[in-house]
């Protein structure tokens, strides 16, 4: 069974936010909505301070609390692990947004554009059905599906891979099938030490963070 997952190599991420920009470009999200964002975390005290850039977003959890709490069944989980939202079912109660431990969900009640009035590209890509409902990262599932139909491999072929991964300038973001031991991300997970965010909550996030090479 295929299970799509993402891997972020924290040693490589430089916090350039190109993934954020690529996501906004690919998904036409309004201002202040960042389905893929990069946290800038400082730890320690001067002069021993470390800075870490941490890409976050929907973790497409194995056991997503957002799906369980959704009163409308708008939030679903596909067989390949991608958590989706049916914009036509969602009532915009935002229960999913408060249930998500990763603050990955957004609700925009009014149309907003980067410079006030909508530019031509914003007009052409504006979707009224996204107003007043929950939205979040989709793992670019339409790219995955279209790529698979063409016989491409998500995570290997850019046309079948999420936009944020394609755009990463540092090779920090990776995407692939975590159930396939030969996949690119399984190799990375086997060769490196990794963790998942807030793992103690039992949500089973499908977003892995590499932090060091594997122990010999």
């Amino acid at each position: 069974m295929t299970r799509w997952a993402m891997v972020a190599d924290l040693r490589r991420c430089v916090g350039c936010q190109t993934c954020t920009a690529a996501c906004k470009h690919a998904n036409a999200t309004p201002p202040e909505v960042q389905w893929r964002r990069v946290l800038d975390m400082e730890t320690g005290e001067y002069p021993n301070v470390k800075r870490t850039f941490v890409p976050v977003g929907c973790m497409h959890c194995d056991d997503p609390p957002c799906m369980h709490v959704c009163p409308t069944t708008a939030t679903k989980k596909r067989a390949d692990g991608v958590v989706t939202i049916d914009y036509d079912l969602c009532i915009g109660c935002a229960y999913c947004a408060v249930a998500c431990p990763y603050q990955a969900r957004y609700k925009t009640d009014r149309a907003s554009f980067a410079y006030g009035d909508a530019m031509k590209n914003e007009q052409s890509r504006f979707e009224e059905r996204r107003l007043g409902v929950a939205t979040k990262c989709t793992f670019c599932s339409e790219r995955i599906d279209a790529g698979l139909e063409k016989g491409l491999t998500p995570g290997v072929h850019p046309a079948a891979t999420p936009a944020c991964v394609n755009a990463c300038i540092a090779g920090a973001l990776h995407f692939g099938d975590v159930e396939d031991p030969a996949s690119n991300i399984c190799v990375l997970l086997a060769e490196n030490q990794h963790f998942r965010m807030h793992e103690e909550l039992g949500t089973g996030p499908r977003f892995y963070y590499l932090w060091d090479k594997g122990q010999a």
């Binding site: 799906m67 709490v69 009163p71 409308t72 969602c90």
Partner: peptide
């Protein structure tokens, strides 16, 4: 009050769709 808060008030009856797992559906 909840009805005033939801983003799509005209779809409010969708709240009954998921009593299997959602406590909000069960409350309704």
């Amino acid at each position: 009050g909840v009805w005033l808060e939801i983003g799509r008030p005209l779809r409010a009856l969708h709240v009954y769709f998921n009593p299997r797992t959602s406590w909000m559906s069960r409350e309704a």
